[in-house]
Every structure is written in C-alpha cells, then in structure tokens.
Design a protein around this nucleic acid. Structure first.
Length: 415
RNA sequence: GUGGGCGUAGCUCAGACUGGUUAGAGCCCUGGAUUGUGGCUCCAGAGGUCGGGGGUUCAAAUCCCCUCGCUCACCCCA
C-alpha cells in the first residue's frame, strides 16, 4: 500500500500553484493598501493559549484540536485559528508600545481535527486581519470592507454578509439569563443536543436546524433587542458605516460564532458557490481577549477567511485564472555531441536574466521540440553541428515558426 | 462521533443487475510517419494485485461477509 496524505490534507501540485501565488499576491496587495502589516507566528503553540483564548467549552477546543506533548510533556497544539496566536505575539512583543492601534495580518495553514467534507479540511489556509487597540465601530466596518475588497479584486460574486451583535460581557450575561428563563419550561421539548446547549451555551440553540427547536426559539428574546446602550449604539454605527459604503448586509440575530471571545459585532460572509460549508470569512470584535490573555484591557476586531474556499468559489464561478507564463527560452541540441555547447549557452542566457531550460536526457530533436512546446517558450535555440562550426545557432520563434541563424556572441541581444 | 454514496490504467469512466476465453474506451504519456525541428492528423506502444482480506463456485471486477480508503451530509466552521 502506498502511503497517502493524511486524512483531510492535500498536496498543492505545480499545476495549481499559480492559483495560490495569484490569490496570495492579491491578499497582500489589498491588505497593504489598508495599512496592515504581516505577522508570522508559529504553526503550533502551547495548548493553553487556545483553551484560554477560544474557550474551554467550544467545539474547537473540546474535540477539534491536534494536541500532542513535547519531549518534556508540555502540551502543544497545532494552531486551529490565528487570532489567539496574534494576540499572544502582540503581548509577548509589547506591540502596544509601537502605537496605540496596530493593524496586523497573517496568512498560512490552520489545523482542525474534523471529519473532512466539501470545503472542509484538517489542514487549511486562512488569511486574517486584526486591528488591536481601538473600540471604534469604524474599525469593525473597515474589517468587513477589507474582506470584500479582496473578494471583489478576485472577481468573487454571489456573496452574502451576515451581521449581528452578541453584546458585551454585561449585556450578554443578562441576556443569557433572560434566554434561559424563557427556555426553562420548554426545555423538555428541545432536542437532546439543545438540552446540552441550554446548559453550556444557550445562544447555540438558535443555530439548531430541527423544526421543533426552531419553533421554540422563534419567539425567544433576541440578543439584539437586549443590548446595553453602548453595544446598541456601537452596532448601529457599524451598520451606518456599511450603509455609507453601499454595502448590502443582512442582520442575523441568530448568528452565533463558535469562539467564546467575540463581543459586540459578529459577522460572516457566505458564498453561494460553496456546499454546506458556505462561510468564506468570519470574524468580529473581541474586546476582552487581550485582557484574558494577560494584557491590559484592549479592544480589538478582526476576521479570518478560508483560502481553499475562495479557490473553490472561483472555480465554481468559472472565473478565469490568470494564465501561467512559460519559460522564455528552451535550448535544444541536435546531437548529444552538442550538449556541452548547449549547456554553456543555457547558462549564458540565464545569467543574462532570462528564464531558460534544456533537456538533459538523450532525446531526439523532435522530442526536445515537444518539450519546448509544452513549456510554452517564446523561442527555442537549436544548437547543431553545422551552425556551431560557424559560431552560430538557430533561433526559432515558436509562435511564428520563423527561424534564423544568429551569431552566438549576439544571442543576448537577439533575445 | 452519526448517516448516505462511491472505490476498475496517471485522469474521466464503461463492464457488475443476468458470474464464463488474454478486463475495455477517451484523455495523458512514449516512439514513429523524408533519420536536424513542436502544436493538428494518422500509426504503434507503455501503463491495471479490478482498494485490501476472506467466503460461495468448476469459474468472481461481477454474488456474500469483513476491512480500509475516498466523498457528501449532520455537528461545527474557514
């Protein structure tokens, strides 16, 4: 049996790598335009960072982390998300001293030990941004706008923006009490999952797809109707900034995200091109996380976006990827006797800054021409006995099929 | 973790219901068609433990059981 890639992982093959370069370039271009600086954190962290950051009772922490001990028995975890590590790095490097507000972005692999399905992998790539140090609702709006700008540049359509406010510590606590009170006498009618949710995280009952639970939750009090004044005003301002930018969004009072650290704004961008896993980006405000991880109280907001899902959506839309450009030059030898001259010429061309290659195996000229064709080179330089004796080679234009003899010394100028 | 679908050549698939000679096609790959020249066409060739194991049978890709893998969905999320 051949060894395969681990479940939920995949190879990105040379034929697909240009898609990744293309997307990564656009992401970096847009994020730089908005003033974000890249940060690269390790692929693994001490487990406690995620337990404290994401929340002990969340699905990610309870059943989806790749956790392993190092040789001294300390528990490490492959990062399942990017925000907690960025906040850790922010604190560890005292980045708050550089400026009051700091804008960071990351791009790279995340790991979650889930059962794979369409658009869900165990190792997947995200890019994300974090604005740390401001509670301004403009920052919330900017984060959403930034994501949309990336998608726009990539030609992604059929996107929907869902937005909600989950309140702050105070009003959410009050609201959960209220919700529990509402659900209390109806508890027996809930499905078994929701009974559990009632205890652990009653907000999640809103997410339940079962008709019975939906009926019960339909008339439940909504978080958006129970926000404190500050949260309500913040939410209103975020929406107003989005309206100013003519961004169409849907308020979804049932939107609850899977990380405990969110406060106030929570949002998701979903794509109609995806399967059941249709979220292409998700994020929100996390005003308490920095403090929970040992820093001074520092408000922050950000999002994470899935790159594989972007690729799937782009493929689905049949948006054309930019064409991969071939090599400039292929050097072909008529006979094995000419291989040394051909190799010297090849290096001369490369040293002049052009991309070039040759075939080192003992193929016929015909087979070399086929290779040149497949590489989609602009010119093929043919090195043959007859011409070499005159210090010349043949230069063939692969598009026009025109070819001429040129002096070897002039080759760089000719190209 | 729980379900459904599917595993035949590198890729996309036929053959399976109605077991029966060397398991097929297209694409891809290699070589050739005036031996110093590509893309098109034509010709030839390479490539398969029919996912794996066991069973039924004179005979299994085909029927039965087990197992592994992939995939989609639930859950949750990017």
């Amino acid at each position: 049996m051949l060894i395969r890639v681990p479940k939920g992982t995949q190879d990105i093959l040379p034929e697909d790598i240009s898609k990744w370069y293309y997307i990564e370039d656009i992401i970096k271009e847009i994020l730089n335009k908005y003033g974000y600086k890249e940060i690269r954190t390790p692929f693994f962290e001490y487990t406690d960072l995620f337990v404290r950051g994401i929340g002990e009772s969340t699905d990610i922490v309870t059943k989806e982390m790749f956790t392993f001990p190092d040789r001294k028995g300390r528990s490490l975890t492959l990062r399942p998300e990017g925000t907690a590590p960025v906040v850790r790095a922010y604190l560890e490097n005292s980045m708050g001293r550089i400026s009051k507000v700091i804008k960071l972005f990351y791009i790279g692999p995340m790991f979650r030990c889930e059962k794979p399905q369409a658009g869900r992998f165990r190792q997947f790539n995200q890019f994300g941004i974090e604005i740390i140090g401001t509670k301004s609702p403009a920052a919330d709006a900017e984060v959403i706008i930034t994501a949309l700008d990336v998608y726009k540049k990539l030609g992604l359509k059929n996107l929907e923006i869902l937005i909600n406010s989950v309140g702050c510590k105070k009003c959410r606590f009050d609201y959960i009490q209220k919700l529990k009170k509402y659900l209390k006498d109806k508890k027996e009618l809930l499905c078994s999952d929701c009974k559990m949710r009632y205890e652990k995280n009653p907000l999640r009952v809103f997410d339940c797809k079962k008709d019975g639970c939906q009926k019960i939750i339909e008339k439940a009090p909504l978080i958006t109707e129970n926000l404190c004044q500050e949260c309500e005003s913040h939410f209103a301002q975020v929406k107003s900034y989005l309206d100013d930018q003519k961004i169409v969004f849907h308020e979804d009072p049932r939107l609850v995200r899977g990380f405990d650290y969110y406060t106030k704004t929570a949002f998701e961008i979903i794509s109609g091109e995806l399967g059941a896993q249709n979220a292409i980006a998700g994020g929100g405000r996390y005003d308490d996380l920095v403090e929970e991880l040992g820093g001074k109280p520092t408000p922050a907001v950000g999002f994470a976006a899935g790159i594989e899902r972007m690729i799937i959506a782009i493929d689905q839309q049949k948006v054309k990827w930019p064409e991969e450009k071939g090599l400039d030059i292929f050097v072909a030898k008529v006979d094995e006797k000419n291989k040394d001259s051909a190799f010297k010429l090849l290096q001369k061309i490369r040293n002049a800054g052009l991309s070039a290659d040759m075939d080192y195996s003992e193929g016929s000229l015909k087979s070399q021409m086929r290779i040149a064709n497949k590489l989609r080179v602009r010119y093929t330089v043919i090195v043959g006995e007859e011409e070499l004796s005159k210090n010349m080679v043949i230069l063939r234009n692969m598009q026009t099929k025109e070819q001429k003899e040129i002096k070897i010394d002039n080759i760089i100028n000719e190209l």
